[in-house]
Each structure stands twice: as structure tokens, then as C-alpha cells.
Amino acid sequence: MQSIKVAVFALSVIVFFALFANSIPQIESRPPKEVALGADMTPQQLAAAGRQVMDTKGGCFTCHSIGSPGPRAPDLQGVGTRAATRKPGLNAEAYLRESLIEPCAYIVESYQCLMTPMNKPPVSLNDAEINAVIAFLESLGGEITVKPIAVSASSSSSTSQVTDAKTPPEILKAMACFGCHTISSVDFMTGKVGPDLSHISTVAATRKPGLSAKDYLRESILDPNAFIAPDCPDGPCKSPSLMPPIFGDRLTAKQLDMLVEFLAGLK
């Protein structure tokens, strides 16, 4: 009987802790969303995007602030003007670029070098994002001189992100399959680079001897170079394949199965 009383007591304590933890503000820490950047942005648009990058992926305002000096990092108010005078021979854009990539090259008085290079992990801003951040910093009291650049596939870290898509069309959309492939029964699948998949199941079983249609489709998603399809919209498909071999990392096993089932049903 005593042991039961002790068990009930211990359980009550545990439940109390769980309830207490659920009664305080609940915040999830999600990976920052990618900010859309393009080579045709106006300086103001680029600066606005730079502010977004600083707010999200850059995490700059953890230490910096605008309008009040923080204990860990300098106030960014007016940095667009100051940047041009910090280091002889460096204009504002060059100084700001150096500060982002080599933060310890110049330490503002009364601060320590606590900042990590923004182009390296864990922050890993790509060149386009660095330019956008520079544009925003230049806009704080100075003139925006930096030019926008397009985000290349290799410079974007978003390629490694897994999606939480739950249906085949969601997966196709999240993986950007529409960029290359066409599926007539799916309205957004209108790509003209890779093979048309509208009736893929009719040929999938005969592509590789010994491989069933589903096995062929699974292999093609995971290892696009294992078999190069003969026909693409502009003629024979290119070898090596233009399709990146990244979907093994980006799809969960369940999503992969779902996608294979869906494609195998396209007659």
C-alpha cells in the first residue's frame, strides 16, 4: 500500500512538472525560411530583402540593434555612413563585405570579436544574401551601391531541406519537379526540360531488364544517372542527367514510396 502511495505521489509530481512546462509561453525553433532574391531587384527591394535575411537566417539582431548599442555588438544606426571611413582604402561596400566575411578584421572600439563569418556554417549566407545584407546596411545612412545577384542552385542551402509534404502533388511541388517535368493530370507540372511523365508507367517496366516499373521509378528518383531516358522535349535526354541525385536525402522513405506509387499509376 505504501509503495502505491509513493507511486501516486511521484506520478503527481511528474504531471505537475509537465503541466507547469505547458503553462508557459511555447515557442518552436524552426529553421529560417529562405528569402527570395533575384538579379532584377531594385536597390530598395534588395535592402528590404537584406533586412529580412538579417532577421531570419542571419540572426544578426541577436546581438546587434538599430538605435541602441548592445552589450555584445555595435549599434547599426548610421553604419552606412561610418562604413566608408572605418578603414583607409576600403569603401563602405568593401568594408561591410569584409566585416561580414572576416568579422575580426576590424573590431569596433570597446567590443570583442564574438561574430562568426556569415558565409560559413552555422549561418552560411550565400553570395546573394551577403549582397542583400550589405544593401540594407548601406541604406542605414548611406547610399546603396551593391548590386543584386541571382541565387545559384549551388549557393542555396535550401536544396538540402526535407519537406513535410503529405500527398504526391505536394511532394512534386515541394521538390520543384515542375521545373523540368510534365504530368498532364497535374496542373502545375508543365516543365519542358526532362522526360514527360504523363504516361510513365507504360514504359517504366521495360526500361531496364529485371527491374519492375516501381523499382525503375525508385532508382530513377534516387540515382538519375542509372538510366538516361531516351526522349526529352528538346531531343535525346542529356547524359549525365541534369536531375540532381539529392532526393534520397530530401525525401522520407514514406514520401518516396508515395511518389513511386503515384508515378506507377500514370498510364
Partner: peptide, 9 residues
């Protein structure tokens, strides 16, 4: 899919 830190609750 779990590439985030869940809430304290």
C-alpha cells in the same frame, strides 16, 4: 522532418 526544436511543453 524533425529539423526544428520542439516547444518546451
Amino acid at each position: 522532418l524533425d529539423a526544428y526544436s520542439p516547444t518546451l511543453g
